[in-house]
Design a protein around this nucleic acid. Structure first.
Lengths: 116, 116
DNA sequence: ACTATAAATGAATAATTGTTCAATTGTGGT
DNA sequence: ACCACAATTGAACAATTATTCATTTATAGT
């Protein structure tokens, strides 16, 4: 038998067998939790919310959120890697904006949830 | 002047002043990121997905996800505290099920996002 | 009333992560 | 060509967190 990590026996095998084939692929579930992990940070949520209102450069975001430019830049990189924001250089500054139409929708649904 | 944490001056004061009043309350944003933090874990996503298919007891979830009962129980507690699942005792077992109609919707929207 | 066991719990460990600080990079404007 | 400065980067540190292991709790079924 393969190595098992679980430490107990099934109680309702029928339920387990019914649910098992309905579970999404492992890598999809990882992408999913990675996505939420990116959203699950106060600074990044603030950045996303701000960028939903207007594109902004790193310096302005630092002032708006009252954080160092470095901290903002680090978190913008996380959002950029996750493809949630995109960066465009204009003159001396780099302007960030939302890169995904899902984000706004998900933010709003989640807001409904937490506001109940 | 109050203590500032930012290390730079505003570049577009007009944009900052326009966006500032549109930002949600600080505690709302915290609730929001806390919510995503709960979703941002592979084990908990799997638990939620499984429970979307059927209510299940801790033992069956352990077998299905191939984890120790303890690890499952710890994570179910996180989900329970976050009011995402509820527990009902039936006979010898505790059956868990989804407790929020938003969760399924948000999971599906997020799945659309990561599947592109 | 006992007993077997499902579930919960707490402490400990390892891993991950956010911010700070200092230094570097790249380039717009003169 | 130079300078000023916006932005990025990397290392270090502190804080948070997921799992394991050992133990405890509660109670269903006899």
């Amino acid at each position: 038998m393969e190595n098992r990590n679980t430490d107990c026996e099934a109680i309702n095998i029928d339920i387990i067998e019914k649910v098992k084939p309905k579970m999404p692929e492992m890598n999809i579930l990882c992408d999913l939790s990675d996505f939420f992990k990116v959203m699950g940070d106060n600074t990044r949520i603030k950045l996303l919310w701000a960028l939903e209102e207007s594109e902004m450069c790193v310096g302005d975001l630092s002032v708006l959120l009252d954080m160092t430019k470095s901290a903002v830049s680090h978190q913008l990189r996380v959002l950029r890697v996750a493809k949630l924001v995109k960066a465009v250089k204009k003159g001396k500054n780099v302007y960030y904006s939302l890169n995904d139409y899902h984000v706004k929708l998900i933010l709003e649904k989640a807001l409904e949830h937490v506001c109940e």
